[in-house]
């Protein structure tokens, strides 16, 4: 790809060139893969989600590397990283921040909460009460926080990684569908392969590896890359395929309710980022198919009376819809 000046009008200095950014991105991905072993697919999806300006939901059991992934991402991005452990007594103010009266200034002063970071890890997001959950999710949707009448912009890029445990549901408040929709992708990590697990067991502790990892990308880089991704070409044939997929999700033999047009837009956005990571300047059907399961997983429920999982249904659906 030729080096086109970025839309931000930055001069074409070597460090700022498109190619250099791509190289840094590749390095960042490599670094994360070096930390979270054997999860290349998930890492790629996580980066797709980041580049598509989305937020990521990780649904998995404790101890498979959810936090490590989030932490590694934050580290290579050179970003401000905050982790919020969601509990049932967590209040919205604990996330968003509070205004405190300062006697010396005779005024309220806003103390930003942990959400004012580039990368936020919301651990066990379903343990908090709906009130707290919605505070987080509103912030994610709007990119800003309004407290006592004053609006505070959240940093840009702003990337939320939320995790939840799909099995241990005692004392949780499941996120409603409308709020799940705020997450662009949902992934699950799964247990590592035997070889990877072996390597994990013998190698150095992950937190120490993390500790000496240096940032590779700057938030500025992320913004530029996000801009580039959004420009990727989408052909008519691909749009036809996307439409066919969306139409098929609305067939009651798979799911209760099909994907919304908003989900369709998200699908394209995510596929663009995925294509970019695959070094293409156009979106291929494979990009759609790669991100589709992650996109559909948390948005869909299987039709009533069927004993299939959403994953099964998504696989079946993808195998069913012919490329136009």
């Amino acid at each position: 790809m030729t080096t086109a000046p970025t839309t931000l009008g930055v001069t074409d200095s070597p460090a700022n060139s498109d190619e250099a950014r791509r190289a840094r991105l590749a390095e960042a991905i490599g670094t994360v893969n070096g930390i979270l072993l054997g999860k290349e697919r998930q890492v790629q999806l996580a980066f797709s989600c980041l580049l598509a300006r989305g937020h990521l939901l990780i649904e998995d059991l404790p101890g498979v590397g959810k936090t490590t992934l989030a932490h590694a991402l934050a580290t290579v991005l050179g970003a401000d990283y905050q982790r919020i452990q969601f509990t049932s007594d967590l209040m919205p103010a604990d996330i968003l921040g509070v205004s405190i009266y300062r006697r010396d200034k005779e005024a309220f002063e806003f103390h930003p909460g942990p959400i004012f970071a580039d990368v936020v890890l919301a651990d066990e997001v379903n343990r908090a009460t709906p009130k707290t959950q919605s505070a987080l999710l509103e912030a994610m949707a709007e990119g800003q926080v309004t407290i006592e009448g004053s609006t505070h912009a959240l940093p840009d890029p702003f990337f939320v990684i939320a995790t939840q445990n799909p099995l241990d549901l005692v004392g949780t408040y499941p996120l409603p569908d409308s709020q799940l929709d705020r997450f662009l992708l949902s992934i699950s990590l799964g247990f590592p392969d035997p070889e990877v697990e072996r390597e994990l067991l013998v190698s150095e502790d992950r937190s120490r590896v993390l500790a000496r990892t240096a940032p590779v990308l700057s938030p500025r880089d992320v913004l530029d890359l996000q801009e580039t991704c959004a420009q990727l070409h989408v052909s008519d044939a691909l749009l036809a395929y996307v439409q066919a997929l969306l139409a098929e999700t609305r067939n009651s033999r798979w799911f209760d309710i099909g994907l919304s047009p908003r989900a369709g837009l998200a699908l394209l956005r995510c596929a663009r980022a995925h294509a970019f990571l695959e070094q293409r300047d156009f979106v291929a059907p494979e990009d759609i198919k790669a991100v589709f399961p992650g996109l559909a997983r948390h948005r869909m429920t299987v039709s009533h009376g069927l004993e299939a999982s959403v994953e099964d249904q998504v696989d079946g659906l993808l195998a069913q819809v012919a490329l136009p």
């Binding site: 291929a284 059907p285 494979e286 198919k289 993808l318 195998a319 069913q320 819809v321 012919a322 490329l323």
Partner: peptide, 9 residues
């Protein structure tokens, strides 16, 4: 191969 496969697949 099936008709639901993309060229790369």
């Amino acid at each position: 191969v099936t008709v639901s496969m993309g060229p790369l697949e």
